[in-house]
Design a protein around this nucleic acid. Structure first.
Lengths: 341, 341
DNA sequence: ATAATTCGTGTTAGCGGTAACATAGTTGAA
DNA sequence: TTCAACTATGTTACCGCTAACACGAATTAT
């Protein structure tokens, strides 16, 4: 009873199944959705007929009729930064236990792209939206406010959420890193980051960082920015450049772990004593760091938790449950081997 | 004229816009889709009204009525392996130039999960399917055959495609790597890979590899497998284990670059002469390798090309164009610094 | 035994759009 | 002038499914 190749080109509908099974379309619909009372005998007839024909229900029609859609829009800036696929993985894990299904949209960090992706996704009337960050165009905000579905903004916590929010305070993360660095006695601090004015999270971390330094009467001694290319290579190159230019730096703060790892590898290869001569720290707590010769100091951005909780909020709301709308997670500082004297 | 917060909870429909603009629903539909002749005056009235109300069209209804869906199902085994997000990125790049939009499904390398994800996606009647690999359950194959949309199987090339196929021959990739290794004079060869019987591409590479070795009268001298955890760490650990157990190995072939990088770092840290004492090679050509102290030999799996071409095939077919159905790409061997004597 | 439930199935009327055709005005060529 | 051809808009009939209700048969309660 393997599915037959549909001979007429006409796509199969409930009617085809119902005729094959000798029952009404409604009964087939009930069987296929496991809803309502159907006798075992008819249930069997119907499943048999459906399988034999190779019937695949049309969710478009179903969604229109029932006003229910099991899709959750997930909007992220990029797939090249492992952070976002990781968040996605956690979201998927949670939604796998529910009838909901994630649909991913990528914005490339462009607000207008975000707006158009959002518009596109909302036009499928999803059961919820998970979106990275708090900065959106006015139109995007308005769309989300009017959409009448749960909206969860993730990753960041510094700003006004539209609805629910799950993340870490990026400012605080930058601040705490600065405080730890100062506490360890480092004073001549260099910063390396991405050249992306639209990466608001990186920007806020930097602001928190400099703010805390300022409170201790310290200023960034030198800085370096990059864009594009392999982050590991860029980290290497920037570290070389900054140390040649400012040999008296005693600490390098990298805005992400990949460039931090590049910096670490550069120092190790060039006999620079880490953390004696120069201390190093990154951000994110990516798994990769575990495999490096030395453990880079970093701060875990809690992205698995974030994905998990965001998905749970959507799932709960989809069931009509009320849930707390603001979840602040605490980024955990890991000193590793590169941040101590 | 910023969008008003919809006062009645009832979601907006074309009718609301049409009433606000004083025209028929059909005219609004025409304006919003840029189809058919509409006078500039009415066009303006309509866009104004739509914007004012904050109207978001309902694609579900639209898709049902027009029998057209702009979604492309993309089914991949995992998001944790950077290879797949990279393919996704290329697919997105191409589809961004079209009205089509990718929808991602993740199978976790499980055939049954693949089947259910596929079923779910097909029930949204996408305009095409891009799916990793050639191994599917019978039911999954049947569904794709009956779906009457373009299907592109990607990454692999060794097997019978359902429709179109874009990829590299994994067997050949393994074979060519083996031949290069032998050519360089290595003879005592160790293999390290994942413990995943369902990763068919890794399996085929391994088969091609051993086959070519056999042709030269060589057998794998020792092997090691891992599952889960940080690939970089595992590469390190496995390398240590295999070299302790079989100190006479003169080459280590890793089934992916991450464990290869771990192996490389281990060797460097332990003063093992690479490639003098031991040669190393991985697979995939991941960007990360560029940042390591030594360039690991690898073979580029052409995943950006694969994503791009797969998306182009779908886009062309969606326009009714005929396109070649079998694209074989050639994995390029990169000797790097770890495969020569 | 008879009414009140429950069970299993069918019927009807949309869901919110769009294809296809219909219909006035307008324009322009014969 | 007269009618074919076009322009701008409207009307109608679905797309494939499900909510809501209807209804006879079977079961249970009284």
């Amino acid at each position: 009873m393997s599915p037959q190749h549909n001979p007429s080109k006409r796509p199969l509908t409930l009617r085809d199944v119902s005729e094959a099974a000798g029952v009404s379309e409604m009964t087939v619909s009930r069987v296929l959705r496991n809803r309502g009372d159907v006798s075992d005998a008819t249930r069997l007839k119907v499943t048999k007929a459906a399988k034999m024909l190779g019937y695949v229900p049309n969710k478009i029609a179903g969604a229109l009729a029932s006003q229910r859609v099991n899709l959750v829009a997930v909007i992220i800036p990029s797939m090249s930064n492992m952070v976002f696929p990781e968040v996605m993985t956690s979201i998927s894990e949670v939604l796998d236990e529910t009838p909901l299904q994630p649909v991913i949209g990528v914005t490339n960090y462009l607000p207008e792209k975000e707006e158009s992706v959002l518009f596109e996704m909302l036009s499928w009337r999803p059961s919820g939206v998970i979106i990275a960050g708090l900065e959106h165009t006015a139109a995007a905000r308005a769309m989300m406010q009017n959409a009448d579905v749960p909206i969860v903004e993730i990753m960041d916590l510094d700003g006004d959420p539209i609805d629910a929010i799950v993340g870490v305070s990026q400012r605080r993360a930058g601040r705490e890193m600065a405080e730890a660095i100062i506490e360890q006695g480092y004073r001549k601090i260099g910063f390396m980051g991405t050249n992306m004015p639209l990466d608001h999270r990186a920007r806020k971390r930097f602001e928190g960082f400099t703010e805390a330094l300022a409170k201790a009467g310290i200023e960034i001694a030198d800085q370096e920015f990059y864009s594009g290319g392999s982050a590991l290579v860029k980290g290497r190159e920037m570290t070389e450049a900054i140390l040649k230019r400012s040999p008296d730096l005693d600490f390098l703060y990298f805005s992400n772990d990949m460039i931090g790892a590049g910096g670490l590898l550069y120092c190790l290869a060039n006999g620079i004593d880490v953390p004696g001569q120069v201390g190093l720290a990154g951000f994110n707590g990516v798994e990769l760091l575990d495999g490096l010769p030395k453990q880079l100091a970093t701060m875990d951005a809690e992205r698995h938790q974030i994905g998990r909780i965001a998905a749970q909020i959507i799932a709960a709301r989809a069931n009509g449950e009320e849930v707390e709308a603001r979840i602040e997670l605490t980024p955990k500082l890991q000193f590793g081997d590169t941040l101590k004297r």
